[in-house]
Design a protein around this nucleic acid. Structure first.
Lengths: 362, 362
DNA sequence: ATTTAGCACTCGCACAAAAATAGTGCTAAA
DNA sequence: TTTAGCACTATTTTTGTGCGAGTGCTAAAT
């Protein structure tokens, strides 16, 4: 908007920073006096007042009413975050902990995301968000069919992304192992590489044709493929640590909080939000920068997790606008980093063997 | 506790019922006057007052302070619910809707539960709960290994309960199709029917022995089995419609609400709670009847879903103590009923074929 | 003997006035 | 350019008061 650039004197920056942090800490408007007392600014409250007045004119600060202290405006937060992002240093001492926690739970991608979200929440004291974005177009790269009993078989699908999905299929008639093998072959031939909308009726009919007597297997199986594809497409979102929100007075308006939670649960909006804004690095949405109206006094910090260049998930944190950006930025970055690197080296397989052998010795 | 039996006169019952319902409706203490006016009790407020005084002495009512109306005590609610449970009639007109909604989403058990929880929440306006209880002891009934690429294969496991689970396994060396087949055979031979704690080191070593050169495959694969078993064991809980809670003033104490949400998220307590109380039919926990302290002014209504006599999930509703038990009991019963019956007839497979054919015509 | 009417009494709540607080803006001096 | 001091103002907190809802009791009515 009215980005006048870096017209801020060094002292103004210092004051702004101090004020933002004080406000994050306490949640209340902060006055000139407070700053002179607690911070090492070597000037008097009057000076601060002058500066603050200017900062307010420039749009960085807002005062809720005459004779209240100042509160950072959205622009103020934005400035604070931007300068912060440039400079925040990785204090590596927490990384170890993250790694350990994540490794312990290393499993499917969903689990990782869930754990990461929990982790983010508990480390920052805000609400953690884990998102598995919509995959634009899923295709299958391999099918395998496993018989379970006379009327059921399991369908194992490996997606182009390398994920393994399984569905149970109930058939109307009895299934012979033999037919299953043929069907699997057929699927591998005809359906690999096709996205959901490319599986057309003619293809299905042709397959039924080929299967002859066992044509009745085709439709339910294809239906499964459909389902899995759209399921993966759908996207997922998980929250953890909602209770943290309640600690902050800005969410004491139950009306609004209710709306917010409702919006979060319906997930679509957030899902869109996140997939749009993907800047590949940490994103910080402050207040009304978010298109979701109900998040006006909330901030959302999130960062995608990449594997081989593809986004496979997003980890983030939701909290009041006055969230502790310093800590949050750092934490999110570390968590996503840990996951990413862990993804690349892939499962720490050796561990069980060790565990197993040590087991006797302990 | 002090169950003096059915010492309640018919009129007392009527008054109690009227009062409970009035309180559910409005949320505020209800006085003698209100009852004479709105309900068809043919006596004056003074009489009601006398009766209410007695009811209070007996412990069915409580007055928050002198000169406020009465509020049902826990015991009062309990009485109300108990009589209600005997008599509540199934109004079948909503069942159709439930069936439809559930069928549309018919998929894996997790999805069903999730959908059901959502449904319960939206139909009752309270918070829906879906629980997949801890399975006391899972065993595998079949293994299948599917190669993905040189260093990865997928492991498909069919549990004793008939669920299909998949895990991706990364190996340290190259995998030949041949070895996979052998390994699968071996697993089917050695591990079927074993619960997690029965898979001991000697068994693993023996398998490694048999596999010879390809022994390196065994450990990571076994680890997966472990993981899946404990994962299934774990139990799962999902909430939906948390925002509904906020509509009720009893949750306006953000402090307490926060604790409640925290407890809910950690899920263990609720999981235990539910698996303990399993009376196989509808359970109603009113206020402090629940061992979870933080739920003192909440009620929990839930009912297990059975398949072939085994509990595979629990659907419930959480709300304020003054929840609309009539409606909730009914709804939960209908939803669980729908699911159960749907489970038995199993997937409505024909549908896709129809859909497919109509597809061209539309 | 049970129900009803009437009345005095008790709280809590909502509203209003008053006091206290905190922080600003401005002016004048350093 | 910074600082000190002071007047000003809006908010918050405290205090006080009246109103109303609802009870409990007693006495009359059925």
């Amino acid at each position: 908007m009215c980005a006048k650039g870096t017209e801020l004197s060094e002292r103004k920056k210092l004051i702004l920073k101090a004020l933002v942090e004080a406000h994050i800490e306490g949640g209340e408007p902060v006055g000139s006096k407070y700053i002179t007392q607690n911070n090492l600014l070597s000037c008097s409250s009057a000076t601060i007042r002058n500066e603050m007045a200017e900062l307010e004119q420039m749009g960085y600060l807002v005062q809720p009413h005459t004779s209240a202290g100042r509160v950072p405006s959205e622009m103020g937060y934005r400035f604070y975050v931007d300068t912060l992002v440039e400079q925040y240093a990785r204090t590596t001492h927490e990384v170890g902990q993250i790694n350990q926690l994540l490794k312990a739970k290393m499993a499917e991608i969903d689990q990782i995301l869930e754990t990461a979200s929990r982790l983010a929440s508990s480390m920052t004291n805000y609400t953690g968000i884990a998102i598995k974005p919509k995959a634009s177009s899923v295709t299958m790269s391999k099918f395998e069919l496993v018989s379970m009993d006379e009327n059921n078989f399991a369908m194992v699908m490996i997606t182009s992304g390398g994920a393994v999905k399984t569905k149970k299929v109930k058939t109307t008639g009895t299934v012979r192992e033999d037919d299953l093998r043929r069907l699997a072959e057929l699927f591998n031939e005809c359906l690999c590489g096709l996205s959901a909308d490319m599986i057309t009726l003619p293809i299905i009919m042709e397959m039924e044709n080929v299967m002859g007597d066992s044509a009745f297997l085709v439709t339910p199986a294809v239906k499964c493929v459909y389902e899995v594809m759209s399921e993966i497409d759908g996207g997922t979102m998980r929250l953890s640590g909602i209770n943290h929100l309640l600690k902050y007075p800005e969410y004491s308006d139950t009306q609004q909080l209710g709306q917010l939670l409702g919006t979060l649960e319906s997930k679509d909006e957030i899902l869109d939000l996140v997939s749009q804004a993907e800047s590949d690095d940490i994103n910080v949405l402050i207040g009304s920068e978010s298109p979701v109206k109900v998040m006006n006094n909330s901030s959302l910090v999130f960062k995608p997790i990449k594997k081989h260049g593809k986004t496979i998930g997003v980890i983030g944190v939701l909290g009041p606008r006055r969230m502790n950006y310093k800590q949050v930025l750092q934490t999110i970055d570390e968590i996503t980093g840990s996951i990413s690197s862990m993804m690349d080296e892939e499962a720490p397989i050796k561990e069980l063997s060790e565990k197993g052998e040590h087991h006797g010795g302990e």
